[in-house]
């Protein structure tokens, strides 16, 4: 069934997110459409859904696998009044929201692979891509793109994604209503978004508890330099603390992580 603004709003309990809802059949990318809405003055929390994206983007031009009607694809306009140091909390709150929505719907544990992938059983089920605009060095506008894999089965996946991706239907072992997913996602984002200003402790705690990388061996690239270590600490603002093989401990700012790969623990 198609997502409609009325069906999502029917039992939606949010204060900010989803205040305005736009549902499209097809668009190039929901982020682009959300930018248009935002630049035309759309309120904080405006959300654009699409059944299909023809140019849905992952990071750096990577494409996002989502055949028509199999995913919940949305972009949310956020206009928080925050200091620049808190910008990473936007990604964190969106990832936490997606993880909670996944757990709520599929009843399986969801974890966050720093900083923006939501995993179930090590396979990617949701992803976040945020775009922002600053005015006079102040964060002004964020477009939070979220994709949640909902309705495809293992056999629908291209071979190269079968081990890497999963969906709510696969994990739940039953059909899943996309309207329910959309609602759960907006409600969770609404809660976490409202924590950004005052609830730093709650975000930090959840970020740590949901981390897929805490205690895991990872390879991190920052500024052209690669470091291998075990993740000793994760924090949405402070970044990562890595324990290196030499026994040294190294702090890496989250904003400086260019790439993070999980390695097999020895």
């Amino acid at each position: 069934m198609r997502l409609t603004a009325d069906s999502i709003r029917a039992r939606l309990h949010t204060r900010i997110v989803g205040r305005k809802i736009v549902c499209l059949e097809v668009c190039e990318s929901t982020n682009d459409r959300a930018w248009q809405e935002a630049l035309a003055g759309a309120p904080d929390g405006t959300t654009v859904f699409a059944e299909e994206q023809t140019k849905g983007r992952g990071r750096f031009g990577r494409t996002w696998f989502a055949p028509r009607g199999t995913a919940v694809l949305c972009s949310v306009v956020l206009r928080p009044q925050i200091q620049v140091e808190r910008v990473p909390l936007i990604t964190a709150s969106a990832a936490l929201a997606a993880a909670e929505a996944v757990e709520d719907i599929a009843g399986v544990e969801a974890r966050i692979r720093f900083p923006n992938d939501v995993l179930v059983g090590g396979r990617k089920i949701a992803g976040i891509l945020v775009e922002s605009r600053f005015i006079s060095s102040q964060p002004d506008l964020f477009i939070v793109g979220i994709g949640v894999n909902v309705a495809f089965g293992r056999a629908d996946l291209p071979e190269d994604l079968r081990e890497a991706a999963t969906s709510l239907a696969i994990e739940r072992g039953a059909e899943v209503s996309r309207v329910r997913v959309a609602r759960a996602l907006l409600e969770a984002l609404d809660r976490w978004y409202r924590e950004i200003d005052g609830g730093l402790r709650a975000i930090r705690k959840a970020w740590r508890e949901r981390s897929a990388i805490l205690g895991r061996k990872v390879r991190v690239r920052e500024s052209g330099r690669t470091t291998v270590g075990v993740v000793d600490e994760v924090d949405p603002i402070e970044g990562l603390v890595l324990r290196l093989e030499s026994g040294h401990v190294r702090a890496v700012r989250g904003e400086h992580v260019e790439r993070l790969e999980m390695l097999e623990n020895e």
Partner: peptide, 9 residues
């Protein structure tokens, strides 16, 4: 300039 997957053009 990217910070934790926040892409800022």
């Amino acid at each position: 300039v990217e910070a934790m997957k926040v892409m800022n053009e």
